[in-house]
Amino acid sequence: MDIKELMEKLENEFEDVEKGTIQPETNFKALGEWNSMLALIIIALIDIEYDVKITGDDLRAIETVNDLYQTVTERMEK
């Protein structure tokens, strides 16, 4: 996986975010649309697309797309 692909996948899950808005340093949880339902959707997305489990606690500690990317790639390597 690369971070570009992850950014695109994230953008698809946000309905009110325009393409190209999400960057590696974007704090996606600070976007207006963010809510508990989107948190669920992101956890499911990571599970389905990358076969990696992230928990609610993981997501709480993650801020930027880059953080998420690091967590996912680290767990994919294991």
Binding site: A39, L40, A44, I48, K53, G56, L59
Partner: peptide, 12 residues
């Protein structure tokens, strides 16, 4: 309900 953990359980 902890919705996040329920989802994780369901997907597993």
């Amino acid at each position: 309900m902890n919705g996040l953990n329920i989802l994780t359980f369901a997907l597993k």
